[in-house]
Structure formats: structure tokens, C-alpha cells
Computed example of a mutant assay.
Amino acid sequence: MDKILVTGGAGFIGSHVVDLLIEQEKEVIVVDNMSTGSYKNLNKDAKLEETDITDNLGLNEVFNKHKDINGVVHLAAQSKVGPSVENPGTDANINIQGTINLLELCRKNNINSFVYASSAAVYGHAEQLPITENAETNPLSPYGVSKLAGEEYVKAYGRLYGMDVFALRFANVFGPRQSPHTEAGVISIFIEQLLRGEVPAIYGDGEQTRDFIFVRDVAAAVVLCLKHINEHSQQPIYNVSTGTETSINFLLKDLCNALNENFNPEYKEERPGDIKKSYLDNRKIMAKLRWAPEVSLSTGLLSTIKFYQG
């Protein structure tokens, strides 16, 4: 049985990756400091090692304890733009130094398979849509910079040590277990507001667009990378997206329809720095890894609503 270590495995995306790995009969070690993760998210068949990716001593103990790890999925991160602006050093320590710590331990322990979670934030304002992996990277925040730096370290270790590496640039991920307190969780925010009988707030005119992808499809892309070792280390960057843009107005109308609520948002002043339109080209991962998103936006929204109602 393969043994896979998943950082951030008690978090939103990570817990779905862990679930899918266990469904495929993998042994899973979860490394999570539980600062944003939840014990409720943890799969009962996963082994939790409660430590921080910036704690080299703690990480060393985990790798010494589990000598037969076959691959690492690195999802743990500081994932908010605001805190990265306020404390760029902390952001860099978690997202850059934490990634280096893991890569070094993989090198020392001869673990050759490494999947890194990046973000569409590395692109910034794109000149052309949809955004391809070859688009210029102009991150607008320290968070985007740190995720891009992590990508470069991952690619460098792939070149230097012959590691099988992947860096996946996620679009706007949504689904069950997402916290409404995250900046990217507009769907969970809207659902909670509607369930509480509050008026949802839209910043700007609501015509800004994003690429919303269901978390289970993202987990499938991550797990698929572990099956494609020795194949794509020379081109490890992949967008994980639907390749479709959805406006915030359309999104909220769909949610209102599903919950039998009137569409009557409160429009507020546009937030500085917000990107107007964004969606990612997913043709590369579809062609190279034979992955495709399977859950439609409406189906994913219904599943997410059901989770929050429960």
C-alpha cells in the first residue's frame, strides 16, 4: 500500500484529498498544526501528526517516524491576501520556508513525488482570457508572490534532484467544509448570509467574474498527479479550473433560486485591487493528465448548500 503525506490534510481542500486517497486504499499521514484545520474534517482512517511546516524539528520527527512515505501533497499554507499584506514576513516564512523544509526532507528521505498547491493569485491582472499557464505572472500581493516563489523552489528541486514535481494553480475552489471566514469563500459567505436571512453584499456591480471549481474535482486532480510520476516534471505547472467564467451576480441568483430566496443584494463600493475578470484555461491538464472537471456549478452549489444546512 502506498503511503502519502498530506500537509494541511485537516483543512478544506486537504481533507477532500485525504478522503479520496483513502478511498483508493492509500495509507495517509496528515501533517497539520490545526490553526485553521478542523478535527471534524479528519478522515478516521488517516494518521494525524500535529505539527507545523515551519517547525523543522517536528517535521523531522514525522519523517523519521514514517520511513516508507511514497509521496507528499503540500496543501498547508497561509492563504489569505490581507494578512500577507499586513505581515509579509510571516506569509513568506509559512509559504516559502515551509515549502523548502518539506522539499529538503523529501530529498534527504529519497521521496521523489511532490505535489504543490499553488494559486491563480500568481497571475494578477491578466491581459488575455482565459489565462494559460504561459501567461505572465504579476502577483498583486505578498501571498501571490510567496506562492509563485514556492513554485520556483518546487521546479528547482525537480531539476536538481530528479524529483517528480507538480505545481497546481487552483481557480476559485468551493464546496463542503469551506469556511465562510476565508477571503476566497464567497460562495460559503453567500450561503450563510442567505440561511441567516441576511442581505448578501456584493462589492462592485457584480459583473466581475471568477472560475468556480468544486473541491472534489480539485482533489481528483491532485491525486491524479501521484499516478503520473516520471512523466511531466519538465512541465510541472497546471491550471486546475473549469475554464468557465461566472459573474458574481449569476452566482448569487443561482444560490437564491436554490434556496427560494429573492435576489436582492446590497451593492457596496468596489474593493481596491479586486480583479475584474478571471478564468483559467484548463486544456493543458485535460490533455496531459486526462483530467476533466465533473461537477457542474449548480450541482456543486446544491451539495454545498446541503452541507451548510446540515
Rank of each mutant, 00 (worst) to 15 (best):
S119K: 01
V18A: 10
N33T: 03
S296E: 10
V62F: 05
P236N: 02
S179K: 05
V30Y: 10
Q128T: 09
F212L: 12
R196P: 02
E183A: 04
E183V: 03
S303F: 06
V72G: 08
L102E: 01
P293I: 05
N33Y: 10
K40N: 13
E27Q: 14
G71S: 05
L5V: 07
A92R: 01
R177Q: 14
R210Y: 13
L103Y: 03
D91M: 01
G98I: 04
V215Y: 04
I248Y: 15
E192P: 03
A258M: 14
V154W: 05
A10V: 07
A171M: 05
V6Y: 08
F307S: 07
E104I: 03
Y267R: 09
I187P: 03
L5F: 08
G150H: 01
I29F: 11
I22D: 10
D45L: 11
A126Y: 08
I4N: 07
E266T: 12
K26M: 03
K227F: 02
D254G: 03
D68N: 14
H16Y: 06
F166L: 02
L195H: 13
L5I: 04
A258R: 10
I100C: 01
G197M: 08
V218R: 02
K3E: 10
V240K: 07
Q193N: 15
C256G: 07
K306A: 14
L48H: 12
Q128V: 12
D217L: 05
Y279C: 06
L59I: 02
T209S: 14
V73K: 03
D217K: 08
E133V: 01
F307T: 06
D68Y: 07
D52G: 06
A92L: 02
I69A: 02
S84W: 05
T299K: 14
E198M: 07
L280T: 00
E261F: 08
E270Y: 14
D274E: 12
A184H: 07
I248G: 03
V222L: 13
L259K: 08
T99C: 06
F114H: 01
G197D: 08
H228G: 01
G197F: 12
G300E: 13
K253Q: 15
K47N: 09
L226G: 12
G175F: 12
V222E: 05
I191F: 09
A292Q: 14
G14T: 05
N260A: 14
N43R: 08
L42V: 12
V240L: 10
N70Y: 06
S233T: 06
N257S: 14
F263N: 09
A171I: 07
N112I: 04
E86A: 06
V199M: 09
K40I: 11
L255I: 15
N56C: 03
I237N: 04
S38N: 15
T137S: 01
Q97P: 00
L48E: 13
V6A: 10
V215K: 09
D2N: 09
L21C: 06
L252C: 11
S113V: 04
R216N: 11
S113K: 12
S188L: 07
M163Q: 06
K44I: 14
M34P: 07
D274V: 04
G14I: 03
G82N: 03
V30L: 10
A287K: 11
N70K: 11
